[in-house]
Write a protein that binds this DNA or RNA. Structure first.
Lengths: 142, 142
DNA sequence: CAAATATAATTGATATATCAATTAAAAATA
DNA sequence: TATTTTTAATTGATATATCAATTATATTTG
C-alpha cells in the first residue's frame, strides 16, 4: 500500500494545516483573540443577515453542534448578539455587535495579508486549476 | 474583502473535510473502530520501527500533545504496545500488537478503495500538479 | 383538528488541535 | 563534575469535530 506520506491527501492536510497555523499565528501576533473559525462565522453573519445556524453550518462546512458552540462563545464575548426570531421560535436572530464589527474591520488587513502571502508566486490560472481539482475531489467523496 | 466562500482556502477545507468524512464513514461502515488518524499513526509505527513520538508528530503533521493522546488511546485498546526504551528513558519503544497488525491488514482494502474513489477521473498528471501547488502553499506559510 | 413528521437548535460523549507549562532524563559545557 | 541547556513526553486549558440523542417548535397530513 502506498505510504500515507506519499498520498495527495497528506499534501492536502499539510497545506491546510500550514495555512491555518500561519493565519492563526498572524492573528494572535496582531493581538486578535478570535480564531479563524470564529472570524469566518462572524463574517458570514455580517454578510448574510437573517442566516440560520443550519445555513452557517453548511456554508462554513461545519457540524451543527460546532456552530452552536462557536456562537455561544462569540455571544459570551460580546462579538455577537442572539435574539429570538419573530416568526419562528426555534430560530435565533443573529447579529454582529459593534465590537464584532470593529474586530472584523481591524482583522481584514491581516486576513488579506495572510491569503496573499500563502498564495505568493501562484498564478490566477494555477489557483483556478487547484480549485477545480479540489472540487472534483469533493464531488467524488459524496 | 473577498468572501471566504470564494477563496481557495475554502475549497481546500471542503475537499479535505469531504475526504475525511467519506473515508471515516466507510471505515465505520466496514466495522472498524479506528479513526483515520489512529490508523495513520498505527501504520507509521509499523513501517518505522523505533520511531519516536516526536517523529510521529512531524510525519503525521500533528501536535505532540495529540500524538500522546492518540497513542494512549491505541495502547488502551491493545492496538499498540508501549515499552520503555533501553538506552533513553525519556522515550518509549512503540510496537504494533498482533491485533493492531490484523486491523491494519483488514483496513487496507477499504483505505485503498477510499483513495481510489476520491481521485476518480483525476489523471496522474493532475495529481502531480495538485501536489505541487499544495506544496507551494505549504512553503509560503512557513 | 389531532397525530405524525420535519426542522432548528442544543446537549453529551469522545476524539483531536493548539498553546503553554511542567516533568524527567540526557547532553553539553563551564 | 556541577550547572545549564536540550530533548522527549505529559498535562491542563480551551476550542473544535463528530455522532447520537433530545427538546422545542413548525408543518404536514389523515
Amino acid at each position: 500500500m502506498e505510504r500515507p506520506a506519499q498520498t495527495i491527501f497528506y499534501s492536502l492536510e499539510k497545506a491546510i494545516k500550514s495555512y491555518r497555523q500561519f493565519a492563526q499565528r498572524n492573528l494572535a501576533d496582531n493581538g486578535f483573540s478570535v480564531t479563524i473559525d470564529q472570524g469566518l462565522i462572524l463574517s458570514l453573519i455580517q454578510d448574510n443577515p437573517g442566516i440560520t445556524q443550519q445555513q452557517i453550518a453548511v456554508r462554513a462546512f461545519k457540524d451543527h453542534a460546532s456552530v452552536t458552540r462557536i456562537i455561544e462563545n462569540l455571544v459570551s464575548r460580546d462579538f455577537l448578539k442572539r435574539d429570538f426570531h419573530r416568526d419562528d421560535r426555534r430560530r435565533f436572530e443573529l447579529s454582529v455587535t459593534a465590537s464584532g464589527t470593529e474586530t472584523l474591520l481591524q482583522m481584514e488587513k491581516t486576513v488579506v495579508g495572510n491569503r496573499t502571502k500563502a498564495l505568493e508566486g501562484i498564478s490566477a490560472y494555477e489557483i483556478e486549476t487547484l480549485k477545480n481539482l479540489l472540487e472534483r475531489i469533493t464531488q467524488n467523496c459524496k
